[in-house]
């Protein structure tokens, strides 16, 4: 019964995940796309939980849902709605639909072929204890084996913060454009 439930949850999450991803790339209004991405992130978090990634799932919701998406929505709001009211305005052209279908078919085929080659089962890993994926375990690894990665992650964030500050400063009236 538990198995059945897991499968149901998995299918629901996977379907939500794919559907929201498709929605992200097909809405013409970025506001709706951003909202769909939240759905995508949430359903991914569910999948992470199924994979014993409690800490990652929490991080996903906090970092993405809390920080990144809010930034996105702010920016979208700041820039104002420039693409009209309807999320579907314009609509995709036939070429794009064709390209998506053709490209998607090939990619899906590759994914399935590669995926089928992946061996191993997630079912009976004796070595997976309750502590797997817990904050303590992750934190311990981050401060031992992957100390460098941890530090570098913070540096990357810092660089991005500096970049955000530089790019966010106000424009100036200029006379000549040297490179354009």
């Amino acid at each position: 019964m538990a198995d059945f439930l897991v499968w149901v949850v998995w299918f629901v999450a996977a379907f939500a995940c794919l559907a929201s991803a498709l929605a992200v790339v097909s809405f013409s209004n970025p506001f709706y796309s951003a909202l769909s991405l939240i759905g995508n992130l949430a359903s991914l978090a569910v999948l992470f939980l199924l994979l014993s990634g409690e800490f990652v799932a929490a991080g996903q919701l906090l970092v993405y849902g809390g920080a990144v998406m809010v930034m996105f929505l702010f920016v979208i709001a700041y820039l104002g709605d420039r693409t009209g009211e309807s999320p579907w305005s314009g609509g995709p052209s036939w070429q794009i639909v064709g390209a998506v279908l053709a490209g998607g078919a090939i990619l899906a085929e590759v994914c399935v072929v590669v995926g089928m080659q992946a061996g191993g089962f997630l079912t009976k890993p004796q070595h997976i204890t309750r502590a797997f994926g817990s904050p303590e375990a992750i934190g311990r690894l981050f401060l031992t084996d992957h100390l460098i990665a941890f530090e570098v992650t913070s540096i990357v964030l810092l660089v991005a913060a500096v970049g955000g500050v530089v790019l966010g400063s106000h424009a100036r009236k200029i006379e000549g454009d040297a490179r354009t």
Partner: peptide
């Protein structure tokens, strides 16, 4: 707990 095997995840991720 029996869940989907790794193939399912790889295909979904792909």
């Amino acid at each position: 707990m029996h869940g989907p095997d790794i193939q399912w995840y790889v295909i979904l991720a792909g």
